[in-house]
Amino acid sequence: MRDAELDLRLGARLAELRAARGWSLGELAERSGVSRSTLSRAERAETSPTAVVLNRLCAVYGRTMSQLLSEVEAEPVPVVRAADQRSWEDRAAGFVRRSVSPPHAGLRGELVEARLDPGADLAYDRPPVPGLEQHVWVLEGELEVTVRDVTHALGTGDCLRLRVWGATRFRCPGRRPARYLLAVVLP
């Protein structure tokens, strides 16, 4: 699916989720901490939301990012070939995420491959779903993950398991990109 098509479907889905709750853009802005203008532009697909904005919206709607993105894709399949795995990019943040698992909104676990460019720093102020279990396995490079004010310095082959209740931060301190696998399990 082309980026523009994905943005159109994602915008429409975000508008559906807000309408289903009967919220105005102002109400959603208050709940998510995202400006009304940013929400409006994302719903109209005038801009692709950043990873931080999507995380805030997922928190409000009780979904992981992969669940939200899978809702704008075609009917789930049991096998998704490497060439068909969907990627999403936040170019400004230097972040790329690829949904490895076949998308299915009804399942509790998923695998995501992520890449952070050197110096990239993603700070999430809340989890998309409180109590979300994550396993972060570094495939290449160096990655710093901060959870509850504790920073874990990870290198190639290291794995961190955590439950996300509050803010987290993913940072690539090295001179090479950090590539990691994120296993996500809903509580």
Rank of each mutant, 00 (worst) to 15 (best):
P127Y: 14
T64A: 05
R36D: 03
D125R: 15
L122M: 15
A51L: 08
D7T: 15
A93K: 08
F95I: 13
V53R: 07
D125T: 11
C159G: 00
V52S: 01
L182R: 14
E133T: 15
L143M: 07
E30C: 07
L57R: 03
Y124H: 13
R115Q: 12
R169S: 00
G109V: 05
G33T: 13
A114Q: 09
R36N: 07
E27A: 13
L54G: 02
A123L: 01
P78A: 02
R41C: 01
G155C: 03
V129H: 06
A120M: 05
V79C: 14
W165T: 09
N55M: 10
T47W: 04
A45R: 02
W23G: 05
A114F: 00
A42S: 13
S32V: 13
V129I: 15
R176Q: 07
S32G: 11
L6W: 03
L68I: 11
P78N: 02
W88K: 12
V53D: 07
S32K: 10
E16A: 09
C159S: 05
L162C: 12
R175S: 14
R108I: 06
L154H: 05
P177D: 06
R36Q: 14
P187S: 10
G166R: 03
N55W: 10
V52L: 00
E73G: 08
A123D: 00
V60Q: 12
A12Q: 06
M65A: 12
F170G: 09
V145N: 03
R115A: 07
T50F: 01
P103K: 07
G174D: 08
G155F: 04
R179Y: 05
E144G: 11
W88Q: 10
P118C: 03
